[in-house]
Amino acid sequence: CHSECLGNCSQPDDPTKCVACRNFYLDGRCVETCPPPYYHFQDWRCVNFSFCQDLHHKCKNSRRQGCHQYVIHNNKCIPECPSGYTMNSSNLLCTPCLGPCPKVCHLLEGEKTIDSVTSAQELRGCTVINGSLIINIRGGNNLAAELEANLGLIEEISGYLKIRRSYALVSLSFFRKLRLIRGETLEIGNYSFYALDNQNLRQLWDWSKHNLTITQGKLFFHYNPKLCLSEIHKMEEVSGTKGRQERNDIALKTNGDQASCENELLKFSYIRTSFDKILLRWEPYWPPDFRDLLGFMLFYKEAPYQNVTEFDGQDACGSNSWTVVDIDPPLRSNDPKSQNHPGWLMRGLKPWTQYAIFVKTLVTFSDERRTYGAKSDIIYVQTDATNPSVPLDPISVSNSSSQIILKWKPPSDPNGNITHYLVFWERQAEDSELFELDYCLKGLKLPSRTWSPPFESEDSQKHNQSEYEDSAGECCSCPKTDSQILKELEESSFRKTFEDYLHNVVFVPRKT
């Protein structure tokens, strides 16, 4: 048989008469490798580009789960590009990614509803959504962080984005990388972005840091009482949809009607710091009717980097990364020049730590249904340095008659930039024990000054392991946590139920 035959053949030295091919099969003959313009397919066939392209389009058009959109890589027609490569849609070739590779997620039936953290986790790592997304989240724990972890990498949506009755959302900033909504599939009414009845939605994105392009379709905003109209108009300008909307697409009466839409800028007039305090004062603000001013709200939190936005980490279910302080308005003076500047002394802060701070007014709604208010920009203030805590785990070892090696770990709280350490030492008198000992005694162990690591005695271990207080009263049991108490109650309830079950099964009433 021919060298490319495997198993047997019907005619000697003829690659077209093989029972099976050793390498690849091409047009009725066995070959060692697939010549151009053919590609290896499933490690035994040679196919042309049209064959591989037909497989790709067949799966793409069917949208069946589990099928493969075949691509070409290293002269092979394979189910998908290997790690580190992405497909070129024009020629199906796998090309190296520039940075992290995109991950295209194809949605069944063309859309997916995100109504819980669990459903959001199914899209973790996706960068391109081939379909439409509907966000409908009523509640949950730590929602802002969970949504950002699972949806934060999405850069492109081919269909539309719909935010509907998501009472738990305060902001859409968890879509931190969303840059493009194509609108290839539109919501009824030709809408590519749809926001309806979101009672706590206050911000779409921080438009000073976020760009969003909507290729096709219109915007729809109705019944978002805490979303200011200025935020919607800003989205029109940034996304390129200005002029597409009709009169009733953006409701003037049901958007922002319960919001404090600040239209003035508060400026800080005085800032002073110490290692654990920050004193702030800002310019006074009074609405047209000074009785509408209820006070100020001061927001602050630790910020290692200057990239904080107002609604980071917030949701309507209680999660809030900001510390909020309510401040009463100052006494009002008739003389504008003698107006008191409101302020606040922030206490209990960490030394040498940068804080993000902003302040906003708290006002009631005027009778004319106009909203007044003022808010400052987010500023960054760093507390002063102070003395560091003591170095940890000092170790001293003498390696000769004239040297001592000293080692330690950095302090747990540096409280500033540590530039150097101060080492103090003092000579001590020799131990009298060394002169009084009889060095001729056998088995004498000389006193040693070398360091030995501390260890816990058996008594201390027994005390720590004991669940009861000892007789001397030195140790006591740790208080039980809520989960331990709940577990004990469940076990007790189970024992009672099981005992009742045994009584009912074992003891049967005697027939009379």
Rank of each mutant, 00 (worst) to 15 (best):
S321F: 10
A120V: 08
W205F: 12
Q354G: 13
I181M: 03
N211F: 04
G373A: 02
L201T: 02
Y270V: 13
G159S: 03
I405G: 12
K218C: 13
L133E: 00
Y223D: 06
F220G: 15
S132V: 02
N150W: 12
V117M: 15
K409L: 09
T241E: 06
L169C: 15
L151A: 05
G139Q: 15
P287K: 04
N248W: 12
S389A: 04
T323L: 12
R347P: 12
L265S: 11
G343K: 14
K103F: 05
E109S: 14
S389V: 03
P287H: 10
L219W: 09
L331M: 13
L147E: 00
C126V: 01
I278Q: 00
M235G: 04
T213N: 05
S398I: 04
E155T: 05
S239C: 13
A168R: 15
L161F: 05
L133W: 00
F175R: 00
S158P: 00
S132A: 07
S173R: 07
Y305L: 13
W408M: 01
S333Y: 02
A145W: 03
G256W: 04
D315K: 15
Y167H: 04
I157H: 01
K103Q: 13
F311H: 12
S333V: 07
G183A: 05
F221P: 00
I163R: 00
D335L: 05
C261W: 03
V104C: 03
E187K: 14
V128L: 05
M346C: 05
F268D: 00
D257W: 08
S208T: 10
T273F: 06
Y285K: 05
H233N: 06
S166E: 01
R347M: 06
I137L: 11
I154P: 00
S171V: 02
D384R: 06
D367F: 05
H341R: 11
C228R: 04
G343L: 08
K277Y: 15
I135R: 02
Q216A: 11
W344F: 04
E148W: 10
L331Y: 05
Q403M: 08
S338T: 12
P287C: 14
Q121H: 14
W408T: 00
Y167F: 15
M346E: 02
N307L: 12
P287A: 04
